[in-house]
Amino acid sequence: MNDIPWRWTRAFLLVAEHGSFTAAAHASGQSKANLSQQITELERALKVQLLHRTTRRLRLTSVGEGYFERATLAFQQLDAATEWAMQSTRELKGVIRMNAVGGLVGEELIAPLVFRFQQAHPGVEVELDFSSLRVDLLTSRYDLVMRMGELEDSTLVARRLHQVSTRYVASPELLEQHAPVRRPEDLQGLPLIYGSVDHWLLKRGNQQRVVQARGGFKIVSGHAMRQAALSGLGVTRLVDVYVEADIARGDLVEVLPDWSDTTPLSLVCPPHRYQLERVRALMSWLIQEFPDVYTRALREGLAAKRVR
């Protein structure tokens, strides 16, 4: 084992995270000279250069980038171990930083469940973020993330939350004005209402088709996409909870039902955060409660109620 003081490595992480000695000094309350001295001692002990220093900018060397990534993970694990050792065996307490998809699923189904969990455990504070960034959980600040789609094999802890279906829908009036949609290729003759992705991958068994959105409407909001479809502006692709009740009432018509596919929803967290009882408890709570909440939203048409 080496005998490098942890404070030297923490000083390096502070400066690397904040991008300058001035910002790191302000955030930590240490002097720039003290931080600089600690990093110099660290580099001398490691016999490598971690930072390129100039009067105008500061950047990591290639070795510094690798050391930053590994040291960040190591200190996350150390912090988690400390919390695990200190946490009460009965009372849940502490912060949980969670990232989830936004829109109807995250903001109106996940969020109320999180609020109920916090009410049941007043010592827990959940910081819930609905940004759509694809974060690297091993190096990010998040303890828990809800993801849509198949997960890549990794060292992360993943638990299945639910499974949702995708629907391709349009208003009856729009479909009456165009030729019948019998194949994915037929969508190219219709205006499409799409979100952040400008192409759709349709699957049926072993078959795959890609439909490119040309023209139409780009709307990065599930609620607004549904409204645009109800208004007859085009065909849209949405998760079933947005449109199931509209289909049942006849306000929207599903096209290409044979090409509708299912998508898993999962809860994912780093192994070192899964050690924390509060994180495991929130995961279990969501997995227990979410399927019934989702089924009820499908049946009652939560998306329609929102705009009434």
Rank of each mutant, 00 (worst) to 15 (best):
M1V: 01
M1G: 09
N2R: 12
I4N: 07
W6Y: 04
R10F: 09
A11I: 05
A11Y: 01
F12H: 05
F12Q: 06
L13R: 05
L13M: 10
A16H: 12
A16R: 12
E17C: 03
H18S: 08
G19D: 11
G19H: 06
G19C: 10
F21P: 06
T22W: 01
A23Q: 13
H26K: 13
G29R: 09
Q30E: 02
S31V: 08
A33F: 05
N34V: 10
E43I: 07
R44F: 06
K47Y: 00
V48G: 01
L50S: 01
H52E: 15
L58D: 07
T61A: 06
V63K: 09
G66I: 02
F68V: 03
R70V: 00
T72S: 07
Q76S: 14
Q77H: 08
A81D: 14
W84D: 10
A85V: 13
S88Y: 02
T89N: 09
E91F: 04
G94D: 11
V95E: 15
R97D: 14
R97Y: 06
M98I: 08
A100Q: 10
V101A: 03
G102R: 09
G102Y: 03
L104V: 07
G106V: 09
V114D: 07
Q119R: 12
Q119E: 13
A120K: 14
V124K: 00
V126H: 08
E127R: 15
L133N: 13
V135A: 14
L137S: 04
L137N: 03
T139Q: 08
S140M: 10
S140N: 03
R141P: 08
Y142M: 12
D143P: 06
V145H: 00
M148Y: 00
G149A: 10
G149L: 11
L151Y: 05
E152A: 15
D153P: 12
D153L: 12
S154A: 12
S154T: 13
T155L: 13
Q163W: 02
Y168N: 11
Y168G: 10
V169E: 11
P172E: 09
P172M: 06
R182W: 01
R183T: 13
L187N: 01
L190R: 00
L190V: 07
P191S: 13
D198E: 12
W200I: 03
L202E: 05
K203Q: 15
R204W: 01
R204V: 01
Q207F: 02
Q207H: 08
Q208R: 15
A213P: 11
A213W: 00
K218M: 13
V220I: 14
S221C: 14
G222I: 08
G222A: 13
A224P: 03
A224H: 15
A224S: 12
Q227N: 10
L230K: 14
S231D: 15
G232D: 11
T236I: 07
T236E: 05
D240A: 06
A248K: 15
E254A: 13
P257E: 12
W259N: 03
D261P: 02
T262W: 02
L265F: 04
L267S: 02
P271N: 11
P271E: 14
P271W: 09
Y274E: 14
Y274I: 05
Y274P: 06
Q275P: 02
L276Q: 12
L276C: 12
R278P: 05
V279E: 07
V279K: 09
R280F: 01
I287Q: 10
E289R: 13
T295R: 15
A297D: 03
L298A: 02
L298R: 01
R306W: 03
R306Q: 10
